[in-house]
């Protein structure tokens, strides 16, 4: 453990590197970087015990800009590399940065397994619904009909919902944030860090160059109160400028619907209370889209279980405690003979 006593409290500036940040001006990645640096300062992260691992993409340049250890790896494979880091040294606090292409196309399989295994790390998936670095092709999260250099007539395949994928994969922590939501994002990230296991955070990120305004219908500041809902465990899911809109569970339809308190006899009691340990509820919440519904942000699902790295190291520790490591004896096990 590192001595923390006489170390001055670090600020977000202490997590900036001397490298020039090379994203396009106005890219949503800048805001996320700031939110992460703030989070690290807030949670009192120790730079030398913190590792950022990323794949390839605009978003994956991230580690170069955070004053910690960092590994910018290859396209899609960051979850596997980060798993190796945790297996080698479980004391390290690992943050993974990936994109919608990196994490859900080429790296979809690794994403599935890192979540399923529940390796203790924070996985930030920057979803800009486009391949930024390769200049704007559509991605597995692009809306159907997206016109891009590779889909001049509009994309025909159906997109996936990252948070839904994560829940399906067995993630025990699923959250969503928005690049510009600098107030909310650090809190969500801090919760992710707190969670022991794989924490999946989808961060909606605007690519100003290739997919500008794709989230605008619910991210515009002046409309945000009506188009987003920040859920909190144990709280009724109420939103809206007037704080009078809410999510109601319609038992007959087995579906969520939006209601207005004070209309049609609806009271606060009719509003569904968020239970972050309820997987079914989480599955419904992550699929809500604007404008019919508010887009759900914050910690949507959190139901911890032992992490993979803890379980692996426990086995190692038990083996070490119960068996002497005697290599000479090992290679003499079984039948041997002597030549005189």
């Amino acid at each position: 453990m590192n001595e923390q006593t006489d170390v001055k409290k670090l600020t977000f500036k202490d997590f900036e590197t001397d490298q020039e940040v090379r994203w396009c001006p106005g890219c949503g990645d800048y805001a996320i970087l700031k939110a992460v640096q703030m989070t690290l300062a807030n949670i009192g992260a120790t730079p030398e015990n913190t590792v950022f691992v990323s794949g390839i993409g605009c978003s994956s340049r991230f580690p170069y800009y955070v004053e910690t250890y960092g590994f910018h790896t290859i396209h899609g494979r960051a979850p596997a590399i980060a798993t190796g880091v945790k297996l080698a040294n479980p004391e390290l606090d690992v943050w993974l940065v990936t994109g919608d292409g990196d994490g859900l196309s080429i790296g979809g399989n690794h994403m599935l397994h890192v979540l399923r295994r529940n390796v203790n790390m924070q996985i930030m998936l920057f979803n800009n619904e486009i391949y930024g670095l390769t200049k704007g092709q559509y991605s597995p999260t692009s809306k159907q009909g997206t016109k891009s250099p590779s889909t001049p007539f509009g994309s025909v395949d159906l997109p996936l919902t990252p948070c839904s994928f994560a829940i399906g994969a067995g993630a025990r922590f699923v959250a969503r944030g928005i690049d510009t939501a600098l107030k909310a994002l650090p809190g969500t990230l801090a919760r992710a860090k707190e969670h022991n296991g794989a924490s999946f955070i989808e961060i909606l990120q605007n690519c100003i160059v290739f997919n500008d305004k794709t989230f605008e219908h619910f991210t515009l500041k002046k409309e945000a109160a009506n188009t987003q809902i920040h859920v909190e465990h144990g709280q009724p899911m109420i939103y809206g400028k007037e704080k009078n809109r809410g999510l109601h569970f319609n038992k007959d339809k087995f579906a969520l619907e939006t209601v207005t308190i004070g209309e049609d006899g609806i009271t606060e009691d009719d509003i569904l209370v968020h239970d972050e340990t309820n997987k079914l509820m989480a599955q419904m919440l992550v699929e809500l889209t604007a404008p019919e519904f508010p887009v759900v942000c914050g910690v949507i699902y959190c139901d911890p279980k032992e992490s993979y790295d803890d379980a692996v190291h426990k086995q190692v520790e038990v083996a070490k405690a119960n068996k002497k490591a005697d290599f000479n004896a090992l290679i003499r096990q079984g039948r041997t003979w002597t030549v005189e």
Binding site: V51, V53, F71, T73, I74, R77, P79, A80, I81, A82, T83, G84, V85, K86, L87, A88, N89, L92, N109, H110, L112, H113, V312, H313, Q315, V316, A319, K320, N322, K323, K324, A325, F327, L330
Partner: peptide, 29 residues
């Protein structure tokens, strides 16, 4: 051979397998 501190990781495929090993090397093993 866990008592020798050997950790084995049966990955989801060979790519993840080598990547896990590279991650371990990055971390000092």
């Amino acid at each position: 051979l866990k008592e020798y501190g050997v950790v084995t990781f049966q990955a989801e495929d060979e790519i993840a397998a080598v990547c896990g090993a590279i991650g371990a090397s990055f971390a000092g093993q």
